[in-house]
Write a protein that binds this DNA or RNA. Structure first.
Lengths: 344, 344
DNA sequence: TTGAAAGCGCTAACAC
DNA sequence: GTGTTAGCGCTTTCAA
């Protein structure tokens, strides 16, 4: 008989056999159904425990048509921007009884595409921060309800919760100009600058400067890795190639903080010699010295909005309307708010 | 015929019917199997896309005995301690091809128990930061491979990756004493202090002070919410009830930073009038002014170690050895390293 | 209170 | 290249 060495998993039938009841009765015991003799239940539960039985979540999932798992794709948990978004996503997902599986990409193209495949197979919906067009298109066309977290100005082929980056940068320039600055540099995110097929991003800086009638020299725009260290590196380059600048606008707060600290370490006074504006409004920005002027965005709301939007998609997925992208839900735009602190 | 209004999901059979092939052929098309006519595949894929067909991950999971989902339970994504642990967990999980579902508890008892049930039902393994004994026991006895993330000195009934909190606090005191401090206060975490059945935690402070032959007055130990604001509140109380103290040891860096900033705001000089020691070694601690002296722990390694330990459990789960807790794997202990910076 | 039958949606094995 | 037959492990009828 098939009693010995099998590495097979313990099933409900095994427990049933061991307890001398039908599989159905085991199911009743496991699921706390009322219609069962207390003694039988005890016996079954004991057997199950002894045998190390655990119900298969797949088998259960098949039969009860319920659980939703949201795939949440972010670049990096260590950048404090993402935890705040994640908090919003978790809250909104939890409110719907959804589970949230988190994946990180480190903004690497290959990894993004890998994660895209994974999510398509294993999630029921997806909220993603993604740079690679192919990865985005892949998910969008898979039919998976999908919302992109974006801060590009260029349009993408998927429903998006969008941060209004361009208008944020304009606010930053307006603020700096009002403080008397005319020679403003920008430190942008390398991963983002180097991704994407079209070039909207790299011209933004020039455009905005032009709007304010400001000069722009080559070397006034530097790319940085998305971290404090990356910001410091970029600042070092800036101090060398463009010592004439008096203010720096950064892609985000992490980079801005790195840049500011580096300037400070090099003996520059902030904001007297050099002013710094960040982007994101991280809690962290209040704790550094001087506290960072920043374009704050409601990251928690960003996460919530994204979940709401996928939820809408799922509700609206009535039989035939497939295709992924051409969904009725309009993009949500999250606006920035200038928070002036000590660094300007 | 059953063609009209049913809210049922689109199945492989629906696609098969629509494309005029067998369900197996649809499966071949969807899964990119080689043995299929390119034309047929195109036709099927088109139909699938049009109908919005998405394979059921449950049905797939049933038949291919593979995917592992790790349930990761943490208190709060917004406390920078956790993202660093999460990064380690994600890395180690990804290396094994596991998925990671994240749940937060806000350290609320009721929520912890709720999450425990969820995880038992929906994960194949669990790494959890949990305070409530009942929640811990529930998971441990469910048979789910389980590792607890802990910093208690008291033993718990589950395999644990443990932070050596007690010895960390001793290092802090030793350091402060060597700097000439004799009147040292402690700000502890409220949620943790108020959880747990036995009282090891509340006596630690007194014990350590005694070891160093230091006085302890009532009011020298304050409880704080686990945040910067919580630390500030506790510091306010400390300044009122115990103005004689010259140093403060905190449960973690967030609280320490809050406390330090509040002292600064109240006009005290740091470290001249008041010294501060944190616990965790957050990146954040280097960015504040003055930079925070702290007991650093390798949080990334903590996360990795936890995953390795559950993985061991899963490998060792041979048929009969159930029960949950009495597993062979010894607890891992993560030691602290004193990082001296400007706050002392 | 318990058991037997049916089927959730899919893929692996074997036919054809 | 394509179809048929079996299940994967569970819960939901329905009978006993």
């Amino acid at each position: 008989m098939a009693t010995t060495n099998r590495p097979r998993r313990v099933t409900i039938d095994d427990v049933a056999r061991a307890a001398g009841v039908s599989r159905q009765t085991v199911s009743r015991a496991i699921n706390d159904k009322p219609e069962i003799d207390p003694a039988t239940r005890q016996r079954i539960l004991a057997a199950a425990q002894r045998m190390g039985y655990r119900p298969s979540r797949f088998a259960r999932g098949m039969v009860r048509q319920s659980t939703t798992t949201l795939g949440l794709v972010i670049a990096d948990v260590l950048n404090p921007f993402f935890p705040e978004v994640v908090a919003g996503v978790l809250e909104a997902a939890d409110a719907r009884g959804w589970h949230v599986a988190v994946y990180t990409t480190a903004s690497r193209i290959a990894r993004e595409q890998e994660v895209a495949e994974t999510v398509i197979d294993h999630a029921d919906a997806c909220v993603a921060f993604l740079l690679d067009d192919a990865a985005i298109a892949r998910i969008a066309s898979s039919g998976l309800p999908f919302v992109l977290l974006g801060n590009e100005d260029r349009p993408v082929q998927a429903p998006t919760v969008r941060i209004d980056f361009g208008s944020g940068i304009r606010q930053a320039f307006a603020h700096l100009v009002s403080r008397g600055h005319r020679r403003i540099a920008m430190i942008d995110d390398r991963a983002r600058a180097e991704s994407g097929t079209n070039d909207v991003r790299s011209t933004l800086f020039t455009e905005v400067a032009a709007e304010f009638d400001l000069p722009v020299e080559p070397g006034w725009r530097q790319l940085a890795d998305n971290s404090v260290a990356g910001g410091a590196d970029a600042m070092e380059r800036l101090l060398t190639t463009a010592p004439e600048i008096t203010a720096v606008v950064s892609y985000n707060d992490m980079i801005a903080i790195g840049a500011m600290r580096h300037a400070l370490a090099r003996g520059h006074a902030v904001p007297a010699d050099l002013a710094f504006v960040g982007f994101d409004g991280l809690a962290l920005g209040e704790l550094v010295d001087p506290p960072l002027t920043t374009l704050a965005i409601d990251k928690h709301r960003l996460g919530r909005a994204a979940v709401e939007q996928v939820a809408d998609q799922m509700a609206g997925t009535t039989g035939g309307s497939a295709g992924g992208s051409a969904n009725g839900t309009p993009d949500t735009v999250i606006r920035t708010e200038l928070v002036v602190r000590g660094s300007t």
